[in-house]
Nucleic acid binder design. Structure first.
Length: 528
RNA sequence: GGGGGUGUAGCUCAGUGGUAGAGCACCUGCCUUUUAAGCAGGGUGUCGAAGGUUCGAUCCCUUCCACCCUCACCA
């Protein structure tokens, strides 16, 4: 066994030159590497330091008539995305962060040396160019170059200029390449930024203080999830990456701030799929002296403003649906909406009655039916959830499934809690927060038992948090929502990976030779 | 974790039990307002990895890896 593998290694080691010489990418890299060497010999620095540009492309085009009539010399900088040579003149497409423009180089306008340099440029190279704007015979607004400069030589070829980069794995692993060639991807992330900015503006304008709390924590909590564990060397203690912000933000409410919020990067050591990345973003906010109804009204207003700011309309597409964010959103209690869908009123049922009601609807999984609240949830999920396409506040969840929410003031079986559903997906989770330290301690103890029993997602007892609560926390409404999921909804993206620049990927890829290895081999050859 | 699918050139994709194909990109020519520029020539490949079947495997079989979809749990 070990003999075999050693033999294989030997043969691999013996023929690396031959093997790599046969790799076409290495060949392409070598061609460009040779170009760089030639440039340096001519005294051209392929990686200079700065370029003084006068216009972004979009601005230059917006002011085209004036700039072209006055023959103003302007300076643009960007990446070459296409090149068309026509004998002694060359056209190229130059792109910067704002747009694209055609540039034009003519032999007798720039001289032989500069013309040859431009001729040798590759797609992907970054240049700066000075010139004047004019319209070609074919009617295209174009920059006639009077002078240009190579600003950065690209070694790696760009993906296909027409079909772009489609392979999902490559797009996620090499997001920069995806962004270079796929404009719609650039747009999704611009929208993401806009959404977050709109939320930040809204909260700051409503008197919420943006705060920061620890990501690296001695104890995790505020949700049910398995954490990432690490270790602090000097303190010699275990540490965790946070799974939620809740407990720290509540400490700030106790400390006397009335309205706080945080943009939180959270980490959960769980499975990954279309809706889950191990690292994700949440926004949590806490509002003292308010209850969950106040919070619902504010969240509705926030969403309304964000949608309008980002899309300019309340009606946006998502998958097969057209979602209308025109307020007011519908409120439907869990119990009532079950009644509406099935005719069954579960409010005053015993556990046994609820279970048989669920059974009659075809729900038999015992784990989902082990108390009244779970039965209500199971029936609701089976019969109601998928119908909630338009924005709907689902409220008043059973107490058994809402361990962090205050009991409902009108019915102790329920809690003051809501989730907003859009396109049958949960968009936020909010409650009138539990502020009775004894009640909180008891719920921690229950979680502790679950933890001991092997539930890796149960919350450990946080003594310090109980201490904090015992100083007295005002009545408070709290709300949290997944930023990535909201961005998915507002940009019509199917997967969380399409709204994260760098989604988590397994880092092993068999059979691929890294560019760095090809390059070091190239350098070795040059040294010989 | 269960089920289904994909993996061939830098990119997008065809294809076959018997020496591997196209378009774009790239290289060499020609062309001074082109524009998915055009014309002529050039293929640069561990057909995801490792085994197996076979005279012969990129193709068939097994295992593995990565990615996608889907179901169950979580935001």
């Amino acid at each position: 066994m070990s003999n075999n593998s050693e033999k294989k290694t030997e043969t691999n080691v013996q023929s690396p030159q031959n093997e790599e010489a046969q790799i076409p990418l290495a060949e392409l890299l070598k061609i460009r590497r040779d170009k760089i060497k030639r440039l340096r010999e001519q005294g051209v620095n392929p990686y200079p330091y700065r370029y003084e540009r006068t216009h972004y492309i979009a601005n230059a085009l917006a002011d085209f008539d004036r700039l072209s009539e006055s023959e103003t010399t302007i300076s643009l900088a960007g990446r070459i995305m296409a090149k068309r040579k026509m004998g002694k003149s060359i056209f190229a497409d130059l792109r910067d962060s704002t747009g694209k423009v055609q540039v034009y180089v003519k032999l007798n306008a720039v001289g032989q040396e500069a013309f040859d340099l431009f001729d040798s440029l590759d797609l992907g190279d970054i240049i700066g160019c000075d010139g004047t704007l004019f319209v070609t015979r074919m009617g295209e607004n174009t920059l006639a170059i009077t002078r240009f400069e190579l600003l950065s030589k690209a070694l790696h070829p760009l993906p296909d200029k027409h079909s772009g980069l489609k392979d999902l794995e490559t797009r996620y692993r090499r997001r920069y390449a995806d962004l270079i060639v796929n404009p719609e991807v650039r747009e999704v992330f611009r929208t993401r930024s806009k959404i977050i900015q709109a939320i930040r503006d809204f909260l700051n304008n409503h008197g919420f203080l943006e705060v920061e709390t620890p990501i690296l924590q001695p104890l995790y909590g505020g949700g049910n999830a398995k954490p990432f564990s690490t270790h602090h060397e000097k303190l010699d203690m275990p540490m965790y990456l946070r799974i939620a912000d809740e407990l720290y933000l509540k400490r700030l409410i106790i400390g006397g701030y009335d309205k706080v919020w945080e943009f939180c990067k959270d980490f959960r050591n769980e499975g990954m799929d279309r809706l889950h990345n191990p690292e994700f973003s949440m926004i949590e906010l806490y509002w003292a002296y308010a209850d969950y109804r106040d919070m619902g009204a504010m969240f509705e207003e926030m969403l309304r403003k964000v949608v309008l700011k980002v899309h300019g309309t309340y009606s946006i597409p998502y998958g097969d649906h057209q979602i209308d964010f025109e307020p007011p959103f519908k409120w439907a209690s869990m119990i009532d909406s079950i009644k509406d869908e099935t005719g069954i009123d579960m409010l005053d049922m015993s556990h046994e009655e609820a279970k048989s009601a669920a059974n009659q609807l075809g729900i038999t999984d015992k784990d989902k039916l082990f108390n009244w609240g779970k039965c209500v949830e199971a029936v609701w999920e089976a019969k109601v959830e998928h119908t909630l396409i338009q924005p709907t506040f689902v409220c008043d969840f059973p107490v058994e499934i809402s361990p962090l929410a205050k009991r409902h003031r009108d019915n102790p079986r329920l809690t003051e809690r809501f989730e907003l559903f859009v396109a049958a997906q949960e968009t936020c989770n909010a409650f009138s927060e539990l502020n009775d330290p004894v009640d909180q301690l008891q719920r921690f103890m229950q979680q502790g038992k679950a933890l001991e029993a092997g539930d890796e997602e149960a919350q450990p007892l946080d003594d310090d948090f109980i201490t904090a609560l015992s100083y007295g926390m005002p009545p408070t409404a709290g709300l949290g929502f997944g930023v990535d999921r909201l961005v998915m909804l507002l940009t019509n993206q199917h997967s969380i990976r399409d709204v994260l620049f760098f989604p988590q990927m397994k880092d092993y890829k068999e059979g691929t030779i890294p560019v760095s290895k090809m390059l070091s081999h190239l350098i070795d050859q040059e040294d010989e």
